[in-house]
């Protein structure tokens, strides 16, 4: 079974006037996938539809070969979920909580307890595994949420903003853990995040969402997106006309606060076009560097430069 997730014409809305998920069609195979999008793009909602928490208003979906609406129990038995929100039950220590959730997943009690120690050790909570979870810092809670998602060794792991609220060191460690888990052939991961570096660091494939739709699906590093060449330029003179002309040629432009313009030119266009337009509009190119297209460029290109978020 190569296709782990298959969605066809999925719609979902929390209110009548706005669709949160709009006619999503998606096929996900084995590996580590990133679900990327600005806040409110529908990433978490899509993840919850896949988990069977939310029922789509129309469409059809299968996860690991099971219908997401009819076989929820079968789906949930095989998946692990790390929620974004703070959701740990107080009054328990980490070992008790993790093994408890393992038991709820269908693990025998003794096995769950043994495995709880292992996963807590793995995520770096070995020293504090007997501490009450309400005394944990945000970073520790994130690790514990990952541990509880791993306890029953799921085939498919859903991680919702896994590095949220973590300090830089903790974040690096979390990403290392995800990378390590992702190396296992038997484990497939879907990471929802609005942080591009997280996706870039951990995923082989990226699915970009915006306004409830899938706007792009491609490999992170192969840059199937290398439909663009990226240039960084600084201009003096008639900048506005210069940029307007580029936009008319389907170029994507973003400008930083140092007036450095990052320009994505479609592959079929040569860099000469920049100089030609500069000459025609009376602009002077003062700085010109060709650089590698990044995931950020892909993202900006997919959702548009002038996105509200």
């Amino acid at each position: 079974m190569d296709t782990l997730i298959e969605l066809k014409n999925i719609d979902f809305s929390y209110s009548k006037d706005k669709k949160t998920i709009d006619n999503v069609n998606l096929g996900i195979g084995k590996g580590v996938f990133g679900l990327l999008g600005p806040n409110g793009a529908g990433k978490t909602t899509l993840m919850k539809i896949l988990l069977g928490f939310l029922t789509p208003s129309s469409g059809y979906g299968r996860v690991l070969g099971f219908d997401i609406m009819k076989d929820r129990k079968e789906v949930r038995k095989r998946i692990g979920y790390m929620p974004e929100s703070d959701c740990l039950m107080p009054g328990m220590d980490a070992v008790t909580l993790t093994s408890y959730l393992g038991e709820l997943s269908g693990m025998p009690r003794q096995e769950a307890m043994k495995r709880a120690h292992e996963v807590l050790y793995y995520v770096g909570l070995e020293e504090s595994r007997y501490r009450q979870v309400e005394t944990y810092s945000t970073g520790m809670k994130q690790r514990l949420k990952l541990a509880q998602a791993l306890i029953h060794d799921p085939k498919l792991l859903f991680l919702d903003e896994p590095s949220s609220g973590m300090d830089p060191k903790g974040r690096t460690e979390m990403l290392e853990l995800i990378k390590d888990i992702g190396k296992k052939e038997s484990m497939n991961i879907i990471i929802s995040s609005h942080l591009l570096p997280d996706i870039e660091a951990t995923c082989r494939h990226v699915i970009i969402m915006d306004k409830g739709k899938i706007v792009s699906q491609q490999e992170v590093h192969s840059q199937g997106i290398e439909r663009f060449n990226r240039f960084e330029i600084r201009i003096k003179g008639n900048t506005d006309s210069f940029l307007e002309r580029l936009k008319a040629l389907d170029c994507q432009i973003s400008t930083d606060d140092r007036e450095l313009h990052s320009i994505l030119i479609p592959k079929d266009q040569s860099s000469r076009i920049l100089f030609k337009i500069a000459m025609e509009t009376g602009a002077q190119i003062r700085h010109f560097v060709q650089s590698k297209a990044t995931l950020e460029d892909t993202f900006v290109n997919a959702i548009g430069v002038n996105h509200d978020n």
């Binding site: 928490f53 038995k77 703070d86 107080p90």
Partner: peptide, 18 residues
């Protein structure tokens, strides 16, 4: 109410639990 307060329903219902 403890589960409501700690928002732990996703932890329960991401398991094969109805």
């Amino acid at each position: 109410s403890g589960d409501i307060q700690s928002r732990s329903f996703p932890l329960y219902f991401s398991r094969p639990l109805e």
